[in-house]
């Protein structure tokens, strides 16, 4: 990460939701329990469910993207160029997938 403090967000309850995402992706049981309770207290049970569902959706999508070597969609690249640079995303190993290869013969089945 580079630049500004990623927990310093102007999005309502942003810091709580970021900690929840962090606990869900890489946290232990204790951290997860605390993060879950914080979302419940500050936002509510329906918001907790939606937050967990978004985590689940992107825990799935990142694996699809990284394991298949897809590039970033053009519209996303244009929209997120500044943000990706600021967050240090361009330095990730999987960024090396983000290049258009030459068209090749079909792989065998």
């Amino acid at each position: 990460m580079t630049g500004r403090d990623p927990t310093n967000t102007e999005i309502p309850h942003g810091e709580i939701l970021l900690k929840f995402a962090e606990a869900a992706v890489a946290g232990g049981e204790e951290e997860m329990v605390a993060a879950r309770q914080a979302v419940l207290t500050a936002l509510g049970p329906a918001e907790l469910v939606d937050a967990a569902a978004v985590v689940g959706n992107f825990e799935r999508n990142v694996r699809v993207a990284d394991a298949t070597g897809i590039p970033l969609d053009e519209f996303l690249e244009e929209l997120s160029a500044d943000l990706r640079s600021e967050m240090g995303v361009d330095a990730f190993a999987s960024k090396t997938n983000d290049q258009q290869p030459e068209v090749e013969e079909l792989e065998g089945t």
């Binding site: 995402a21 936002l43 990142v62 990284d66 996303l76």
Partner: peptide
């Protein structure tokens, strides 16, 4: 149909991708 706002949803999505070191 969601209880979270669009910025909240996208912030969680971005954080999950970043934590997984995924550029996407």
């Amino acid at each position: 149909g969601r209880s979270l706002s669009r910025p909240q949803i996208e912030m969680i999505a971005s954080r999950v991708s970043a934590l997984n070191e995924c550029f996407y």
